[in-house]
Write a protein that binds this DNA or RNA. Structure first.
Lengths: 153, 153
DNA sequence: AATGAAATCGTTCACAA
DNA sequence: TTGTGAACGATTTCATT
């Protein structure tokens, strides 16, 4: 059984907004007792609908308020080069997200940094050190307009 | 007082990996008792270092495995048009993230969808309905290479 | 700031319906 | 699949160092 019903969806919606809700609080919203809610949460965890519970931190408070997106195009598209890049990018702590893209650009990187100086250092001494990079195109985030943490359920 | 020390940083690091860690477990890792750890967590919450606790769901399991990035350039750059766009984009449930960017492209949107059909519908009937959009450029994610949920602490 | 203890509250599970 | 209740463990508060 891998299906979920409306009750499960409500549970997911609630936990996606606030992982600290108690079983009791969720049960109250659903007009159920603790056990069914408890069992359903365990099931949603076991089936992999819920992957993890995390604390969301404030990047500005942590001293790294700047976000940039960097488009990377490889010079050659040999499998070995691609895999090497994917491997190296895992090691770069500034890179928060990396996507292999369809289209002209091979990779899109989301990077989180404290200053333009740090970005300069990152591009010059870390990113550009990876073999076979052709074009780098960085754009800076001026303002986060929307940032939904959860998915539609 | 808004400073945090190494102990606080360790707590943040642990909680951004696993929000379900008990105070006891964290205290054990730090060789401390419950109270100081408890007080520090409360303090980090109150100071806004910890913004939220959330459950991370599996978008594939939820039936929306496709991610696209869409670059949007406005035709004219009047304040009113910009603000109108920012407002409309909040309402579009497919748009998970939206950034106002420096450079040629005005906005970068991260979009989460179930199928190419849904994306077609989204672009044609929702996004393009917003006034004053000049250029739209969509690229699809082939593979998530890296997706760090937390920040460096 | 940290410790240790005490009260309250939540989680977990066996069993019943 | 859901409800009840009991045992266990976690959270929260506070007097003390």
């Amino acid at each position: 059984m891998e299906q979920i019903d409306e009750i499960d969806k409500t549970i997911l919606r609630l936990l996606q907004q606030d992982a600290k809700l108690t079983t009791k609080e969720i049960a109250a919203q659903l007009s159920l007792t603790l056990s069914p809610v408890y069992e359903r949460i365990k099931r949603l965890e076991n089936l992999g609908f819920i992957k993890q519970y995390v604390a969301i931190l404030d990047k500005t408070r942590l001293g790294r308020p700047i976000t940039t997106f960097c488009q990377v195009s490889m010079r050659y598209h040999d499998k070995a080069f691609i895999e090497k890049f994917e491997e190296e990018v895992q090691k770069l702590e500034e890179v928060q997200e990396c996507y292999h893209m369809a289209g002209q650009v091979d990779f899109l990187l989301k990077i989180n940094i404290s200053s333009l100086d740090e970005y300069h250092d990152f591009v010059k001494n870390k990113l550009s050190q990876i073999e076979n990079i052709g074009i780098l195109n960085s754009t800076f985030v001026l303002k986060e307009i929307k940032h939904e943490l959860g998915y539609r359920v």
